[in-house]
Design a protein around this nucleic acid. Structure first.
Lengths: 347, 347
DNA sequence: TTGAAAGCGCTAACAT
DNA sequence: ATGTTAGCGCTTTCAA
């Protein structure tokens, strides 16, 4: 019941409607007297502007949408939080939609954003996003910034402003590190290979083998295309298999947890019998005993950079500004990796 | 550039503006012919309604706001996600603001929600929220559902619809369990005692001592009012102190992590030298070796119930419907608790 | 059953 | 520097 409108303020201050609007929006053509009277009347009446009406008129809602798979995943949550903070400072409100990587929901959410005249969008579509989905996103001219994804099939990749994480470099560094320790049979456990992060990781992993000149036949890939709670079963199978890996690079909390459990069940000691390296520096990785060596990148930076990139577009600053950001990945050395046991090496 | 308006559709279909509105909104007084023509014209032109304009007119934005401390905390994230899903099914869009428990931000966010004519709010204010803050929230008549908080100082507590978690019962059960194992010196490590969850836990903790008739002098409280990354230091101090606890009940991932690290540093084995019980069943608790016995409640249920309660108000259904939900807390038995060593008991 | 017209609260020409 | 006026796109009386 913000029943008090701009009209009431005008009446109370004894000026015209437009003067109030100008005064409140800090317009230039306002006398000190009017400015004062209006401000006073406004606070006295407890006037709050109606954003809806303003938006309808200005054709800008002051809202930015964000498409991610799942906010409850702290990886997304951190990005969202950072982006939210930065956008708020610039006067925008961030609205997040958890789409579960379902193209239907992604479309629906994007449509709703547009219907509500959102000024921009931050998007991290799932692997189901095809060419037409991306085209649709761009439709209507709403500025879009991509979060660590590739516009698959889109010809003009470079036209999409994006914040990218250097998963390639990270995976490569991790793999080189393990190869350097003497490991030859390394398994990479990651998620949906159709999405950029995993795709880049796999490439980096393989490149490390190639560049080091190590026989790549020991490299093993294990893709978890469905987000299973624990990769435990798969890991047990892997570790019981013929060519048992001496080191595992495991993605995130869920898969890492599965690996650690499997190792424990099989009475394999980390790092003596098995080296473990985490992709993503989660609570689990840092607290586990032994502490898990991990690839780390700043989720806050992803959110912040994305917000920055979008704000650039919203302000109309296109010149000079980079439209893509590549964030680095660090290898945090801890206690979970060691040279393989000799018997493992001889094979 | 949703340049195609309802007017265009009217023109194309050869009917009046209001007929289009009626047809599209499934109004009752529309002939089949008009309905058909309008539908066809709308799809042909790719008409998308402008929610902003609609909202301005109907004085209902179809949006619901949510005030939490931090979305990147998975505890909040899960609640938000569940609420979002349910509200979306009912046609509402959820907007989350991370307020870091800062009353200023809470006020600002709530104001913005109201300025944008949000239809309702889900709120979990921090301990800084005083009487006037709560009054302010209620101002304007926007329906509000409280998430596991108490409206401090508000006389009419019961008037606030709320989703509450039975932290009292949970803490009591956990404490009784430990007392039953023979522990006498138990430490409860929890957060800001001015907020409901901790307050209830403390009460349950103490009640367990009282009801069991155990000398309560062994009970120790350790309140982390500042959200420190690791309670490690505090725990070390606690464990090195004179009346070293034989069991610790630790909140969440952060404090639990600190406790586990401290125990490791002091070469205390869990559960032989120290029993550990987690408040909240996080990844860390379930994956840790040994697996941590934990109090568990459903975050999804919190979000769902809150959404349900709010939707009730939004529909105007007040009759019959409960305005408060109390969610149960379960004790998940695992491997981290055992009877105290004799020497500990003798004191 | 349909159309004409009013107006939600605000901003932005345009006049003064 | 200030006031008047015309909408933004939609829903909703009220007549017809």
């Amino acid at each position: 019941m913000a029943a008090v409108t701009i009209r009431d303020v005008a009446l109370a201050a004894g000026v015209s409607l437009s003067s109030v609007s100008r005064a409140l929006n800090g317009g230039k053509y306002v006398s000190a007297r009017v400015a004062h009277d209006v401000a006073q009347a406004a606070t006295r009446l407890g006037y709050k502007p109606d954003f809806l009406a303003r938006s309808l008129r200005t054709r800008s809602s002051g809202m930015v949408g964000c498409l991610v798979s799942d906010v409850s995943n702290p990886l997304n949550g951190s990005i969202v939080r950072a982006a939210e903070a930065h956008l708020r400072d610039a006067g925008y409100m961030l609205v997040v939609a958890s789409t579960a990587n379902d193209p239907t929901r992604e479309r629906a959410a994007a449509d709703e954003f547009k219907g509500r005249r959102f000024d921009g969008m931050l998007v991290a579509p799932g692997s189901g996003a095809n060419d037409s989905m991306w085209r649709e996103l761009a439709l209507g001219g709403t500025p879009v910034v991509v979060l660590d994804r590739d516009p698959i099939g889109a010809r003009d990749d470079s036209r999409w402003p994006a914040v990218l994480v250097d998963h390639h470099g990270g995976a490569k560094a991790a793999t080189r590190y393990l190869l350097g320790l003497g490991h030859r049979r390394i398994a990479l456990l990651t998620a949906d290979a159709r999405m950029r992060p995993s795709r880049e990781r796999i490439a980096g992993f393989q490149e490390a083998y190639a560049e080091t000149g190590v026989d790549p036949s020991g490299a093993q890939l294990c893709i978890q295309s469905t987000p299973m709670d624990f990769a435990q079963g798969d890991t047990v199978a892997l570790l019981r298999g013929e060519r048992r890996p001496t080191a595992i690079i495991a993605l995130g909390t869920r898969i890492l947890a599965g690996v650690l459990r499997a190792a424990r069940n099989l009475d394999l000691s980390v790092p003596r019998d098995l080296s473990v390296l985490s992709v993503g520096d989660t609570d689990l990785a840092s607290v586990h005993a032994p502490a898990i060596t991990a690839l780390r990148w700043s989720l806050e930076d992803v959110g912040r950079a994305a917000a920055e990139l979008l704000l650039q577009r919203l302000r109309g600053d296109f010149g000079g500004g980079q439209s893509r950001a590549l964030l680095e990945v660090d290898l945090v050395l801890r206690e979970s990796c060691a040279p393989p046991l000799l018997r493992s090496v001889q094979l």
